[in-house]
Design a protein around this nucleic acid. Structure first.
Length: 479
RNA sequence: GCUCCGGUGGUGUAGCCUGGACAAACAUAACGGCCUUUCGAGCCGUUGAUCGCGGGUUCAAAUCCCGCCCGGAGCACCA
């Protein structure tokens, strides 16, 4: 803490895909930590790989959107593709100091040597030779793969991955932001080390997979006499069901398996958002998991439980009749009206009124297929808010008649409470399930007064987010 | 193979550094009850773990030491 005046944390993604649940861990932790000490939270786009992991132009904004949604809007934003000159200056400086060298060995040959802890022929050459080679790299003398700047480290380092690691290489593919203006690009460890210092980062919170990188980056700090930030390596996150891997998602989208980056089967923030998972729930989840170095496997039950807590008080209740089946009530002569609260704990929000008007002593209703299939002649159930009934026959048509008693009586008798809608009243609707399948059904018309994006509870079905109203489409969140 | 992490109720985690109040905590799931109305939400409660295996140190071990087994991550001219 006292080594730095201000707490400055950063989140540094490659804009080659949107954020997913795994990214939320460092994001929330960095943001929370910065806020806790009245510090600064920085977003730095690490878009330095035009060839291997090319940035996707729309993703710059998508990532920003994800951060805003999470409630972690950055105080400062940087693009590494704007900072090439800066990296070049430091590269030259390190070359002049003899702390780095330009290696022109074939990669396989170099690997053989460093695995044995031996220097390659380039390493011992004078700084002047390396400066010349560096000019050559910038000037186009070397093609892709022919020269690379390496940082000198301990060649006997127990971890071979640390030995004389590569810092800058030739990459000629056009970059979406700066085109072909540069042909030498820094590798992750180099630009990251330089920027962490240049941006005054005090605390690095990042995934455990970067632990070796921390060791590598410390060499730069040592050569330049800088103070390395505090590092916290958090474990990787995995989702019990739901894909997080960017490359897999991309392949799935291209193959048409997924409808897009927000396909409900995916673990992207976009997908969670669309399914009605609230940012508060993600935040609670991350804070609950904490900054430990151990990896955590997130279960949907867990996300759902957290989200339910957030969403339950907000969600108005409606009847959604999945795969509607007809139910005829006979022996009913007077009209009835069911009055159901929009929310059981918030009577002030009002009620839903559903009128039932019998003709010739009978009225037709619609109930969910699941309920219809379970009914047997002689069985009694309660139509929520309306009346208790006893089934007379199921073939050829499902028919029942009213029996006396209120809901308390129904409860005493242990009857099931089922939801229903008068025939002809329901609005056609579709619910997109977590496995991307779609369930068709009818929703009570009052639901159309909800706004797109709001969360509702379809009673005895589950919580869902209204995705669109004109055709009524909802995304299923969880029970 | 090498480097580094983990293995705690059905599931996901806390506790381990700084042994003792841990007859192990939280959440979730399951089960049961309640509810002017959800057999799927809510509320209340119950069940459920000899803390990977074996040995050692100690008055005392989930916690410390040794060995073994199992799982994960990293070992790029990716980030």
């Amino acid at each position: 803490m006292d080594r730095f005046d201000d707490v400055r944390t950063r989140f540094a993604p490659n804009p080659d895909g949107p954020l997913h649940l795994g990214n939320a861990r460092p994001v929330i932790l960095c943001h929370e930590y910065a806020k806790m000490y009245d510090g600064t939270f920085i977003l730095r786009y690490e878009d330095t790989s035009p060839d291997v992991k090319a940035p996707i132009p729309e993703m710059y904004e998508a990532i920003m959107e994800d951060l805003r949604w999470l409630g972690a809007e950055p105080d400062e934003v940087y693009y590494q593709s704007d900072r090439l000159e800066l990296y070049y200056r430091y590269a030259r400086m390190l070359l002049e100091m003899g702390a780095a060298y330009v290696c022109t060995c074939p990669p396989e040959r170099f690997k053989e040597l460093y695995m044995r802890g031996e220097p390659c022929p380039c390493r011992g050459l004078s700084p002047q030779v390396h400066i010349d080679r560096w000019e050559g790299m910038l000037g186009g003398l070397y093609r892709k793969g022919e020269a690379v700047v390496r940082i000198k480290t301990d060649l006997r380092h127990p971890n071979p991955a640390v030995r004389d690691w590569p810092a800058l290489r030739v990459a000629t593919a056009p970059h979406p932001r700066v085109g072909t203006r540069y042909r030498v690009w820094p590798l992750y460890n180099f630009s990251c080390a330089i920027d962490d210092h240049e941006m005054g980062i005090s605390h690095i919170i990042r995934g455990k997979e970067h632990e070796v990188n921390t060791v590598r980056q410390r060499y730069i700090y040592k050569y330049l006499g800088w103070d390395y930030p505090e590092v916290l390596s958090v474990g990787r996150l995995s989702l019990e069901a739901g894909v997080l891997s960017k490359s897999k998602i991309r392949a799935g989208i291209e193959a048409g398996t997924y409808i897009g980056w927000d396909d409900p089967r995916l673990g992207t923030l976009m997908a969670l958002r669309r399914r009605g998972i609230q940012p508060e729930a993600v935040r609670m989840l991350m804070l609950e998991i904490g900054p430990k170095g151990v990896e955590a496997r997130i279960s949907w039950d867990n996300i759902a439980a957290l989200n339910r807590r957030v969403v339950e008080p907000r969600a108005n209740r409606y009847f959604f009749i999945e795969n509607p089946k007809p139910l005829r009530i006979v022996g009913l002569n007077k009209p009835l009206e069911a009055k159901l609260p929009l929310h059981p704990d918030h009577p002030e929000r009002g009620v839903r009124r559903l009128r039932v008007e019998p003709e010739d002593g009978a009225v037709d209703l619609q109930i969910a297929e699941r309920d219809a299939e379970r009914l047997r002649p002689g069985e009694r159930v309660r139509l929520m808010g309306l009346m208790n009934i006893e089934v007379r026959e199921t073939e050829p048509n499902l028919e029942a008649e009213p029996i006396p008693g209120d809901h308390l009586e129904a409860r005493r008798m242990g009857l099931a409470f089922i939801h229903w809608l008068p025939k002809g009243l329901g609005v056609e609707a579709e619910v997109v399930m977590p496995d991307a399948s779609r369930i068709k059904g009818l929703v009570e018309p009052l639901c159309l007064e909800e706004e797109a994006g709001s969360i509702v509870q379809f009673e005895r079905f589950g919580f869902a987010r209204i995705d669109s109203l004109k055709p009524l489409v909802a995304y299923y969140a969880h029970r």
